[in-house]
Amino acid sequence: MNRVARHSPLRRYLLPGSVAALVGLSVAPTRWLSALGGPADAMGLLVAPVKQPVARVVRWLRPPESARDDELVRRLQDDRDRLESLWLQERDENTRLREQIRVLQQGVPYEGLAVRQVIAPVIGPTPGSGGGIVEVRAGRNHTIEVGAVATTTGAQLVGLVGRVGPRSSMVTLITTKQSDRQGERGIRGRIALADAARGSLCLLYPQGRGVLRGQVEHGGPEPEVGQVVRVEDDQLPAAARMLVIGKITAVDRVAGRAVITVAPTVELDRLSEVILRQTTDSPAGGTDGGPP
């Protein structure tokens, strides 16, 4: 390359110009950055052949606690948890349908709800997330959308899909602490009592150490260590209804109110696969009032 080309203005200003552009992108509005999803997805695909085997080796070296139990017992526990969740969901649906019937008698059309499930292997945690965001192998190719619910093969809620790529998605775990700002959204749950009666409601916030913590509402039975807390939150997708948030590991009293610490029943950052539950609306019967 001759001396003139080496010192051309373009070469001289290319690096400073690139730096300026990157500084600008660092503070650019989020909607501008969403257009860069393509390069980010491409980079993820590029490193996946190295990332996934590495993550698999890490899981083999540090298996979750549940894997050390007897395999048969674990499967039976998964089946029990899943059937219990299904039963509670059906009971909850029954209550809702009774209310729907009452409304139908006033002429309001009925709308059904269906949930589609996709089994997605876990690729691994995303860098810089401290294990709080995991990448799973199911994306737009499986018609997964942002907001889909991730669960274990039992009934443990794992998290919500925060980003969808062509072949993979990012799941934010329910124990991932987002910020210290006031107004951070927690997860509303209900403590399940031993006789399947409905216990007290609570609002749980992630603490970032694999647990959630929050106050129990007044008036209900006193919470106890070991009780299961299930999702009962209208702000979450319907596919998350009655799923297990975790078990109570500690009960404290703060200003006269019970404050519980809840830990998921499995280590969410060491799962090898999750089930993505995507809610689909399927109108069932009724012709009045709907769009053409």
């Binding site: 990157l22 500084v23 600008g24 992108l25 660092s26 989020t30 950055l33 969403s34 860069l36 999803g37 390069p39 980010a40 965001i133 942002v146 919500l160 925060g162 980003r163 990012m170 934010t172 987002q178």
Partner: peptide, 8 residues
Amino acid sequence: GALVAVPG
């Protein structure tokens, strides 16, 4: 909780 890559 939307997840976005921030280059820079």
